[in-house]
Design a protein around this nucleic acid. Structure first.
Lengths: 346, 346
DNA sequence: ATGAAAGCGCTAACAA
DNA sequence: TTGTTAGCGCTTTCAT
């Protein structure tokens, strides 16, 4: 069996309180400090965090609930957060809820049972009922990427509206007037914001928004394929399309290939996320890229902050807004003028 | 504060042993069972797993150490495993070690400190020194995707050699004789096996293997880009290339675009993993696809099995071999004959 | 600065 | 079947 503090106590002849004090940054006489350290290495002692957790009511564990782990956007964020949290002694328990509200609730209940110290959530559910249980127990919550109603808590967001507006404006500036959008689900925050950005750009340019140019997908590859198909068929004069997440962008490219369309000759495209994929497309895709590293860092820091300042509850809600970025490719054609030609090989 | 068993005891007038017995499947008189259940819902009682863990020396937690979480292959496997483990009450703590041996060791130490009940590992390190600590403590280990020396434990593998041989044979059958391979690092199991498959196919076909056609990358996108570049420059007569993981496949496609090569006209390509990406390529990529779901299921089941049969230690080592699968695309040209033409648009 | 002792919430051995 | 009790390994008063 592993050594316990009792063993250290026996080995050094010191009391438990001294040993504990040593591990918790208390004052221990230099001589005893030495003795303890000797005992530790002699006995290969390691603090039992489970026992400590029972006493302190902390598990040094953070729960993370996300819609899909095999979604590059989520994966990148988790990678970043996990790194920081671990460096501070916190384990990350991930729960993938498959973009399903019921499973999301199950995951939250599970994490609550596991007594995580805090929760980081990219919510599927939009009214935040499940989150309340955490809040009631005084456990900090940080929402990432999506804001929801029904709960007031810290969150890290991206300025989706701005990013989408910029993307749409680029298209408008290049002379496109019939721009399709493959949007996300109606009730998802990011999706709504991106659509608003699209609309705003049109309003600023005084170009009417046509319903037929808006397709609501569900952020999956298949809905990207289908969205492209629908938009193309419904809108014979559409010259550009803006796709609002990576999976649907991938789907759109599949659709474009299957329909044998030429980019940007037949259709200009602006995608979302995943720079490597954009570079692998031919021609390279112009995309909106999101700052996953920054999101991860902010979220981890906020929750660590809350965990440290456990007492000062009634502090202000923290809201961080990160900015997306346009990564230029060659998938947008300039209309009217002829400075970009149509033929593109492979 | 949350209710404890003591509260239930007080509420029902029953002793702690009875309550505990109730929660651990013991025999409890129907009448008392009812009472306990009433108390549970009245007090919103939930077992405190931390306390239980202290007593039973179990945390109901599994550690997972992988090289890169934002690697679709890893992400898919984790998604699958997490799902199954959670359904059995086990939390999954993921640690991404960034394909770095030192970080991998740190992650293992961390998980040991967190007292996980078992470990699932896709190893970066090849001699298994770090794993020994788990084994010595009687904690089950399941290796996935990669076999390593220096430790005898359960593992779930893919028949990489076979998959690579089939892919290479396809190219040979189509008349290619100068086939490049973008292989992985020299000391990684999967990489070695895939290379062996490539060599075997050549030997069977009595076609000599040329050193200049072998490039060793490191499973990253950049090494795919570079690998393609090197191979093309070194081998003017190379007509096909086999790329042995997803990231490098993505990199190769980037390289192909940047060099303005036509597929399969100038170069036939067989990639690896990620069917969606293969479909998004133009022409669609022929790839070797790996059974991530199956790997996940097997790994989770093995570790759960070991956790259940804690006592019967000296059982046989379990080794599961899953099969990859070729997914045909249009990226392989038939040489000599002219049944596939060169020009491919967009 | 250190020691003694109580107790976190649970399980399990023993008695009844 | 049920109750009593002693820990699991730690933290934390309270004395000293």
């Amino acid at each position: 069996m592993a050594a316990t503090m009792k063993d250290i106590s026996r080995y050094t002849g010191l009391g438990l309180a001294t040993i504990s004090s040593y591990f918790n940054g208390g004052n221990v006489r230099e001589k005893n400090r030495k003795k303890i350290e000797e005992a530790i290495s002699a006995l290969h002692y390691e603090v039992n965090e489970v026992a400590r957790g029972l006493k302190t009511n902390e598990t040094k564990t953070i729960g993370v609930v996300i819609p899909e782990l095999n979604n590059i956007f989520c994966a990148e964020i988790i990678t970043g957060m996990e790194d920081i949290l671990r460096s501070q002694g916190y384990a990350t328990i991930v729960c993938d809820c498959r973009t399903n509200e019921a499973l999301e609730k199950e995951a939250m209940d599970f994490l609550l049972k596991k007594r995580v110290d805090g929760l980081i959530n990219m919510p599927v559910d939009t009214h935040g009922q499940n989150l309340l249980q955490f809040q009631n127990k005084g456990k900090p919550i940080v929402l990432i990427d999506r804001r929801i109603t029904g709960i007031r808590c810290d969150c890290v967001l991206v300025d989706n509206r701005n990013a989408a507006r910029e993307a749409t404006e680029l298209l408008l500036q290049k002379g496109h007037t019939e721009i399709g959008i493959i949007s996300g689900p109606r009730d998802v925050y990011t999706s709504e914001e991106r659509l608003k950005g699209y609309v705003e750009a049109h309003q600023k340019a005084r170009i009417p928004v046509q319903e037929s140019l808006i397709y609501h997908g569900d952020y999956t590859i298949e809905s990207g394929v289908q969205g492209l198909d629908r938009l193309v068929r419904r809108n014979p004069h559409m010259t550009a399309v803006f796709v609002t997440n990576y999976e649907m962008t991938l789907g759109s490219v599949i659709g474009i290939n299957e329909r044998n369309l030429s980019v940007p000759g037949d259709l200009s495209v602006i995608g979302y996320d995943n720079q490597a994929f954009a570079r692998a497309c031919s021609p390279t895709l112009t995309i909106v890229s999101q700052p996953t590293g920054e999101i991860a860092r902010e979220a981890a820091e906020i929750i660590l902050h809350r965990l440290r300042e456990k007492e000062e509850q009634d502090e202000e809600q923290i809201v961080r807004i990160c900015q997306g970025e346009m990564i230029p490719g060659r998938s947008v054609r300039t209309m009217g003028g002829c400075d970009e030609t149509l033929s593109v090989r492979n």
